[in-house]
Design a protein around this nucleic acid. Structure first.
Lengths: 142, 142
DNA sequence: GTTTATGCAAACTGTTTGCACGATC
DNA sequence: GATCGTGCAAACAGTTTGCATAAAC
């Protein structure tokens, strides 16, 4: 089953109509498997064919139907991610300061610590954004 | 020494002119001792007397002179905090998902964990950005 | 008197909305 | 054929900029 077919099924399950823009957006989320902003889509040439307002309305629609969710982000722009099973795995990235390589960290083992830190000031934690930077093995050798 | 006097000294140290808006902004940061956005200032009636462009330009100026710093934030709006002694140690912030209040966390106790996570994939860590979100005590009650 | 900040108006970006037309079911 | 999505234009909010005037030093 290809991406387009998967996207069609997802839309139908939610009782949403299968329009071309909507399919493209959903396919992109399935394919990229990472948080994306509306800006990321606007940059893509495929999206030059549609009016921006359509894209905005579709993001709203996909979010309210539960296919994507808005996630807090340090970015200037609102980011969204797919809500599918395979996308649930929580992880972070580390970027090499020198060569700019990005590596996925397999696990996130700081949640307990964060909960403690937040509880001290009366907050409960629902989530976090975390990005690391440093040096990769290769660049450290040089 | 009151807030206004402290603010005047800070500005002079940086070679900045002491104008009324600038003093008010800096005093507010000294007084509140937490991240503030330009929106927070616009709301205040004292700031209704000045043109918004002045406020924006002053934030830029105060930042480039190092008296305040822009901090990553999950909020829609850019937040800044004072760079004074009390703010120098490494710390993070948590944003309330409902009321958007931002609170400083006193310490950062995840560095060891992060180093371990990164070492597993061959990286050494030089730094990180971390922002939390959740619910503040007040919003949790409701 | 020189330098820098301000007010005002205009421009600019990202986003939202109203409405007529077109596509989907 | 009824419903819903789209393009287009206009409106909107937050921010930035140009320029003449005013304030700080």
């Amino acid at each position: 089953m290809n991406l387009k077919e998967r996207a069609e099924i997802l839309l139908k399950e939610k009782g949403l109509r299968c329009t071309e823009v909507r399919l493209l957006i959903l396919e992109e989320f399935l394919k990229r498997n990472k948080p994306l902003s509306i800006q990321d889509f606007k940059k893509k040439k495929a999206f030059k064919n549609w009016d921006e307002s359509s894209t905005y309305r579709n993001f709203t629609k996909l979010e309210s139907s539960g296919l994507i969710r808005a996630i807090p982000s340090n970015s200037e722009f609102q980011h969204y991610e797919s809500t599918l099973e395979t996308h649930h795995h929580h992880h972070h990235h580390i970027t090499c300061r020198k060569c700019k390589a990005i590596q996925c960290l397999n696990d996130c083992s700081v949640e307990e610590q964060l909960a403690k830190m937040a509880n001290k000031v009366g907050f409960s934690v629902e989530g976090h954004t975390l990005e690391l930077y440093g040096l990769c093995a290769d660049c450290r050798k040089k």
